[in-house]
Amino acid sequence: MPAGSVGRVCELTGDESFCQRVREMGFGEAALVTKISGTTTSLCLVNGTRIALNHPAAMSILVEQIPALGRVDGPASAR
């Protein structure tokens, strides 16, 4: 996801414990996420909270970009 774009979480993959923690933080499936900045380590906005994700974590969160709000079409990871 490029910086400034908005997406919706489609799927969480990978480590089960991590997925549950992400969901408990309100970052689960269907949550809206705004990418603020970052390449290797990403900074996102979820429910008004700034969340930092490292590369493996970001690659585990699959996001569908929202054309009406975002800038680019097509699926992507939170990275």
Binding site: G14, T49, R50, I51, A52, N54, P56, A57, S60
Partner: peptide
């Protein structure tokens, strides 16, 4: 082991 996943809140 691999690099662990990190999810961390950045406070205002």
């Amino acid at each position: 082991g691999g690099v662990p996943h990190m999810i961390m809140e950045l406070p205002p």
